[in-house]
């Protein structure tokens, strides 16, 4: 297909992606170099019968003109990146200088908002993803073994947790784990502890979010593995049997290697999706004990008076760097394959 025809077909799609995906990334990069204007203060002297006092007010008009002139705020260079709510370079230096042992260093770093969010995001990504793959594989293998008339309904119900949006899905679970909800009440009975609440402790909140993540994504892995199982070559299975492989050995040495490319695919998709975990934190009202990078950005943009564009943009840039690092192995592999073909 000549370049011109190619362009004629693809330009609308390309334009949309450039305008709303590529440009915003530059816009974010630009915004991250600026911070909100300092407040213009007016000091007026109020003199009454009991003497004079200075009153400080914000000059709303001057602020408005300032905002109109420089909507992005005032230039701040890279300071936003290094301040306490992002990379916190000074604080980290101080922590290392004044802490006694590694435990203290870890605890103090975990109190910095950016590192707290990063820790949860990474933990969520790297704990949920393998569990999703394992659980999805187990379900696929057992569903493959049940009578075929049951398979349709099983897949139907399996798809629901995945297709329901995370906010709604997590709300449904959140109401059930409430201490007055069915799961919350049941856990209190099981552990014989009437004050047990999954919302109270950070550890339990983390676990709840992980469980939610696995519940939400396992169907995806299940469906992909299940489709893969339908295409396992039967003659390989039979020759494995002739060679005396038992059921477990057939799974271990025939099915798992055969499904390995699918596992890579699921891992890639899951890494991308889990890295942007955000809605469950809102659904479970978990922000006090677990925040993610995406949640930090959302929170900055939602700031009560005026959105903290600079701060949100800096976190966004750091998140994008994280995404690229995450994708680097995939991109490199694709690049090698492409070169081999060419």
């Amino acid at each position: 297909m000549p370049h011109k025809t190619f362009l004629a077909f693809i330009w609308p799609s390309l334009l949309a992606m450039v305008l709303f995906i590529a440009l915003p990334i530059f816009s974010v990069g630009y915004q991250s170099l600026f911070v909100e204007h300092e407040q213009v203060l007016i000091i007026t002297e109020n003199c009454g019968p009991f003497g004079c006092s200075d009153e400080v007010t914000v000059d709303a008009q001057a602020m408005a003109t300032l905002r109109a002139e420089q909507p992005a705020g005032r230039f701040n260079g890279l300071s936003t990146y290094t301040n306490a709510s992002h990379l916190a370079t000074d604080e980290i230096g101080e922590i290392f200088a004044t802490s006694e042992n590694w435990n203290e260093i870890r605890n103090r770093i975990m109190n910095l908002p950016f590192y707290k969010a990063l820790a949860f995001t990474l933990a969520y990504t790297f704990i949920v993803t393998p569990l999703v793959i394992i659980l999805g594989f187990i379900i696929a293998v057992v569903v493959n073994a049940v009578p075929s008339m049951l398979k349709g309904p099983v897949i139907f119900f399996s798809l629901i947790p995945m297709l329901v949006t995370p906010l709604v899905g997590s709300l449904v679970l959140f109401w059930m784990i409430d201490s007055r909800g069915i799961i919350g009440a049941a856990l209190q009975v099981v552990f014989d502890n009437p004050t047990l609440s999954l919302k109270a402790s950070p550890t339990l909140t983390w676990i709840t979010l992980f469980v939610y993540g696995v519940w939400h994504s396992a169907p995806f892995a299940f469906v992909v593995f299940y489709a893969g199982l339908q295409t396992v070559p039967q003659d390989t299975m039979e020759s494995a049997m002739v060679d005396g492989a038992n059921r477990w050995e057939r799974i271990r040495f025939v099915i798992i290697p055969y499904l390995m490319p699918l596992a890579t695919f699921i891992a890639l998709m899951q890494l991308m999706d889990n890295f942007r975990v955000f809605e469950p934190i809102i659904g479970f009202s978990a922000a006090a004990s677990a925040t993610s990078l995406s949640y930090l950005i959302y929170n900055d943009l939602r700031a009560a008076e005026s959105p903290l564009f600079g701060s949100a943009a800096a976190t966004s840039m750091l998140t994008i760097v994280g995404v690229v690092i995450l994708l680097l192995p995939v991109l490199r592999r694709n690049w090698r394959e492409f070169n081999r073909k060419a």
Binding site: F20, P24, I25, Q31, F275, R276, I297, F309, S316, V323
Partner: peptide, 19 residues
């Protein structure tokens, strides 16, 4: 590029749109 774009957290893009 589309793959990288697909991986972008939507909220980072939104923070680029708002202003």
């Amino acid at each position: 590029a589309a793959l990288v774009f697909r991986a972008m957290p939507h909220v980072t893009l939104v923070s680029g749109y708002l202003l």
